[in-house]
Design a protein around this nucleic acid. Structure first.
Lengths: 104, 104
DNA sequence: TTAGTTTTGACAAATTTCGTCAAATCTAAT
DNA sequence: ATTAGATTTGACGAAATTTGTCAAAACTAA
């Protein structure tokens, strides 16, 4: 169960890079990357894709980690999170079925 | 599978009230309530609780509808929504287990 | 200590969300 | 067809949240 931050920190360490170097490469302030790695700030989708490309991490995998982080932090303090997720799942299926192919 | 909007619209109609009346009672602009009912805008948690109290709807139920709406709209356009929710669930359990009783 | 890396925190900039309002639209009755 | 009343729409500024920048503080390993 890795957070987005865990993944990009592990990837950076695996490549033996400093924050400074990644920051220069991705044109993102190193302070922000430090915060991403410690789950203190949430990246934008664009930034997630930058990381995926740079570290050669599967895009889909990284997006799953990122979005699940977002949902988790959104529901962390709520009761009934299990039911909320079940109902959300139904709603998503319904909403997706209503969308036109162009939107998919 | 009712949205928050469905629920409060049904409740209002059940009581035979006009938007204007609910708006006056809850001190929320009627245009906004109209948008809530059609899921065009998302209410704040405070507003959700106002509706629950006014319509005598179970607070927990209404919060589940509201939060699941939020999650659903957040993931509606994403692939792998099923996996995202599964991973989110694990993360929530983990995060909750780490919190102190005071935070619960 | 020192040199290099990471983390922290304060601040401004940018974006998103929110509330207000009036006009437009819709509906039902006469 | 007109009117009265209800709902919806859209534009706008205000408020709140998120984001980026920077420098200083805190770490770490020699």
């Amino acid at each position: 169960m890795e957070t987005f931050g865990d993944i990009i920190r592990t990837a950076r360490e695996g490549k033996g890079l400093f924050l400074r170097q990644v920051a220069a490469e991705l044109d993102i302030d190193q302070a922000i990357i430090s915060k991403f790695e410690r789950t203190e700030r949430k990246p934008t989708k664009e930034q997630v894709l930058k990381f995926a490309k740079f570290y050669k991490i599967d895009k889909g995998e990284l997006l799953v980690a990122w979005l699940s982080d977002r949902v988790a932090y959104e529901l962390m303090t709520e009761k009934d999170h299990e039911r909320i997720l079940i109902v959300a799942e139904e709603k998503i299926k319904y909403l997706k079925s209503k969308r036109t192919p162009e939107q998919v």
